[in-house]
């Protein structure tokens, strides 16, 4: 970057902040957001999840997940998961070419949201940031006691957002062609939630 460029950009910062200060209205209060309560039941969660194209399956923990997965995804060859022995080894440094071959990722979700079927998936549980979207199919494992009613309660529970984290609600989808819903746009083609 040239010096001139740096000066211009630096002065833009000052100009923008000065304009924001000069033009802002009189201060108005920041409201307190109440906890609206709501239905935090597993039934509600699974019902909404089904409505957004996901699917919930009950499992027994700590019994192994392999048999359930074999039944759900008989064709999956390359599986990435911190929860399974013998899974493909994926970490933050894994090259793109290897990530692109993953058929199935099985990851641990931390909070389920009953009102919208979303599950909080922090970076620490992802193996690689791209894994939840680059995989063809995604399975999230969730303790049913970690289901809350609304996004308010979900955010209240988050210790922080870490470096990266996402609420994942169902499989990747699009309706960009004539508003016809198509499941499996660019991210995972399906989402199964293993509840225990």
């Amino acid at each position: 970057m040239t010096h001139q460029h740096i000066n211009k950009v630096t002065s833009s910062r000052e100009n923008i902040l000065a304009a924001a200060q000069a033009n802002k209205p009189a201060e108005t209060p920041l409201p307190t957001v109440p906890d609206f309560g709501g239905d935090a039941s597993v039934e509600r969660f699974t019902q909404v999840l089904a409505g957004i194209g996901g699917r919930a399956v009950w499992v027994q923990r700590p019994q192994p997940l392999e048999p359930v997965l074999a039944q759900l995804f008989p064709e999956a060859r390359r599986i990435a998961s911190p929860l399974l022995a013998g899974a493909v080894d994926i970490n933050a440094q894994t090259p793109t070419a290897l990530l692109a071959e993953i058929d199935l990722a099985v990851l641990e979700g931390e909070i389920g949201v009953a009102e919208n079927g979303a599950i909080w998936l922090p970076e620490a549980n992802m193996l690689h940031r791209a894994l939840p979207t680059v995989t063809q199919h995604l399975v999230l494992v969730l303790d049913h006691r970690c289901i809350v009613a609304t996004m308010h309660q979900a955010y209240a529970r988050l210790p922080g957002t870490g470096g990266y984290g996402a609420f994942v609600a169902g499989p990747s989808k699009t309706a960009d062609i004539e508003q016809s819903l198509v499941i499996g746009a660019h991210g995972a083609r399906s989402l199964v939630v293993l509840l225990y």
Partner: peptide
């Protein structure tokens, strides 16, 4: 009810 991905 929410977008599929709400990424932080």
């Amino acid at each position: 009810p929410v977008t599929t991905y709400t990424s932080h």
